[in-house]
Amino acid sequence: MIGVDVQVRRKSYAGSETPALSDFRLRIEPGEFVALVGPSGAGKSTLLNIVGGLDSQVDGDVLLDGSPLGTALESGLAIGHMFQEPRLMPWLTVLQNLLLVLADSDEASRRAMELLHRVGLTEFAYVYPRQLSGGMSRRLSLARAFAVDPNMLLMDEPFVSVDAPTAARLRGFLTDLWVQKRPTVLFVTHDLREALALADRVVFMSGRPGRVVLDQPVALPRPRDPEDASVTALREQLLSRNPDLLSGLETHSIAVTSTDPNTEASV
């Protein structure tokens, strides 16, 4: 596990006058699970791309344990990613999709099979992703994120557009895998219940340009469920103190469910 310091002075895209991110600062402690909540267009995915090194066109710094991102990655620190869609290679089998991100060795195969076992996909090791359901594809995507034995995990609304029971199972798998080695996690979501159920800390972002508007520690005991009374109580308490907290969010979540073609995907 590693500590992460992010400072984005300014990040803008060509053709847009308002920057995506401006004066954004975030510190994540080693092994901490931080959920990032904010309205659509707040720059959450942009931030993940910057922290993951996928976007370097930015005025800002990312430090992993005090070292610049590039140096840290060169020295062998690993980052696991999980995207909004599973993003599996359809021409590789389930097992090969894991081996793609691992080195070529017997040890890699053993590790891949063990991860498939952990997410309940052992019997699907040699099938192609098109034969998997939406929930199973996401389990594989989750296993892939953990395959590289990550020091840090970046997750971009990974359980969006799956039904509630499937999302609950996926959160269970995530928690099981996470507690084992406790990689530092940055988890983007627009679902406050999900954020409160998973994270040690929830960071709220404003609309574009994205800034931190509230940094809320979550001290509830684990395991938690989004429907737990304690989670609901904390949510109500937060919303009564900050009535505008989710103002940009509700419309966003409706838009996602109505436009995403994978909405009905399930285990």
Binding site: R87, L92, L100, R144
Partner: peptide, 21 residues
């Protein structure tokens, strides 16, 4: 491009990215 991004994100070596992605 999103699949290529997976290869970049997980730092898959260039030759393997070419052959498998």
């Amino acid at each position: 491009r999103r699949l290529l991004e997976v290869a970049t994100a997980f730092r898959v070596p260039p030759l393997r990215t070419l052959r498998q992605v």
